[in-house]
C-alpha cells in the first residue's frame, strides 16, 4: 500500500503509450494521487507517450491546471510526451479567463487524434523500449 495511493483513475498501457482519463469528479487528493501514480507508471514502464483524456472533466481550476502542468514537466523529464485530449469548450473558455494557458501542455481535440500524434499505431507494431 505504501507509496501507492490510489486515485481510482485507471491507467492503461498500450505499447509505449499510457492512456488515462479523468472523470468529472476530481478532488484534490485524487488529483495528487493520480499524479504520483502516473509518474511511477511512466518510470516503471518506460513509456514514451502519455495521453490524458479530459473530455469528461467539467471543471479545471487553478489547482488541477497546476497538476496538469507539473505532470507534463515531470513526464518530459522522464522522457515521455504528454498530450491532454478533449478539453470541453466551457472549460477552455474558463481557463483562459482565469488567466491560465497551460503553457507547455500539448492538447488535442480528442483521444484519437492525441494517440495519432503520439504515434501510437506505429508504436504498437514496434517493440516498446527502443525509445528515442
Amino acid at each position: 500500500m505504501n507509496g501507492h495511493p490510489s486515485a481510482g483513475v485507471p491507467i492503461l498501457q498500450l505499447g509505449d503509450v499510457l492512456v488515462s482519463g479523468l472523470l468529472n469528479e476530481l478532488d484534490d487528493k485524487s488529483a495528487l494521487a493520480f499524479t504520483e501514480e502516473l509518474t511511477e507508471t511512466i518510470s516503471s514502464t518506460g513509456a514514451r507517450g502519455v495521453l490524458i483524456d479530459i473530455s469528461r472533466l467539467e471543471l479545471i481550476d487553478s489547482f488541477v491546471a497546476r497538476m496538469l502542468m507539473q505532470l507534463t514537466t515531470t513526464a518530459r523529464l522522464l522522457g515521455a510526451r504528454v498530450i491532454v485530449a478533449g478539453m470541453r469548450p466551457p472549460v477552455a473558455i474558463t481557463l483562459v479567463e482565469l488567466g491560465i494557458e497551460l503553457s507547455g501542455v500539448e492538447t488535442s481535440l480528442n483521444a484519437e487524434q492525441g494517440l495519432t500524434a503520439l504515434g501510437w499505431h506505429r508504436a504498437a507494431r514496434t517493440p516498446a523500449g527502443e525509445a528515442r
Binding site: 471543471l59 481550476d61 466551457p90 473558455i93 474558463t94 482565469l98
Partner: peptide
C-alpha cells in the same frame, strides 16, 4: 448556460480553496 455554469463553479472552487 453551460459556459456561465462553468465560470461560476470554477470561481467558487477558487474562492473556497
Amino acid at each position: 448556460g453551460i459556459v456561465d455554469q462553468t465560470r461560476v463553479v470554477t470561481a467558487a472552487s477558487e474562492l473556497a480553496r
